[in-house]
Amino acid sequence: MLSYRSRIAVFVFLTPPLLAYFVAVVLPIFQSLYLSLFEWDGIFDPVFVGLGNYVKMFTADPSFWGSLGRSLVYVAITLVFQLGVALLIANLLTYATRGREIIKTLVVLPAIVSTVAIALLFRRLYSFDPPGLINQVLSLVGLEGLSRAWLSDLGTVLTAVSVPEGWRFFGIYMLILYGGLLAVPRDLEEAAKLDGATEWQIFRYVRFPYLRPVWITTAIMATTNALRGFDIPYLLTNGGPGESSELLTTYMYKTAFAHTEFGYASALSVAIVLECLIAVGLILFMVRKRGFTV
């Protein structure tokens, strides 16, 4: 049992951090839930509408469903890099004989660059006139036909705003997965090799099962991060042209700070939270269904 003196100490040590956390995180979450029940432009008196905002969101707002769909595409494209390509490269890197240390540092570099700088960079890379790096490379390899204004072409803009997000944290996820692969017992692989297993079979039946816990963690981190993706699409196109690159996050931001519909924006932000919780739940559900056993 704690002495009286220690109990006071717990109080002294715990109050400042909890207070800061409460003011910055916990209280605003409840305020958002509360505000989402009102219609309010921030100037006149708020009007209580109950669940009206949610009803409107789910039944009468095509922009909501459109943005949600595009957010999922954004997540999918991001995950192709952060889980797919990252796993491939992490696996290949374990076979590399030298240069591993420098490669590990180099691939992480984009992660320290601010999203504003990345948006500036990609705006220039995607540029059509004057031709940016991507269009220049295309004409260099004789694919001028594919050149286009990547950020104003309705068919490419969503992909174009998603790729930078996948690119920038690729290195972090690659490193995490690489760390997981290093933990696979060597003798197990040797035994499989002696039994005549191919590299693919070793990956599929020895390495990947061992990697699974790390893989799940990585999947959750990458997915929830991508669902929050905001800065780069907001800065590159601000959802345009039209709504063709509008994500749930940019839509919510616009509703709040361009149209000052604070009540409806709060309902949208609650939807973003739900979306993250559902995603984590879904990943864990799929994992459970396929079994935790190695």
Partner: peptide
């Protein structure tokens, strides 16, 4: 309790904090 701050996206706090 601290997990909440890791799971919940910052967007949900923008409007209340602004106000």
């Amino acid at each position: 309790l601290f997990i909440v701050g890791i799971v919940v996206p910052a967007h949900v706090t923008l409007v209340p904090l602004f106000l």
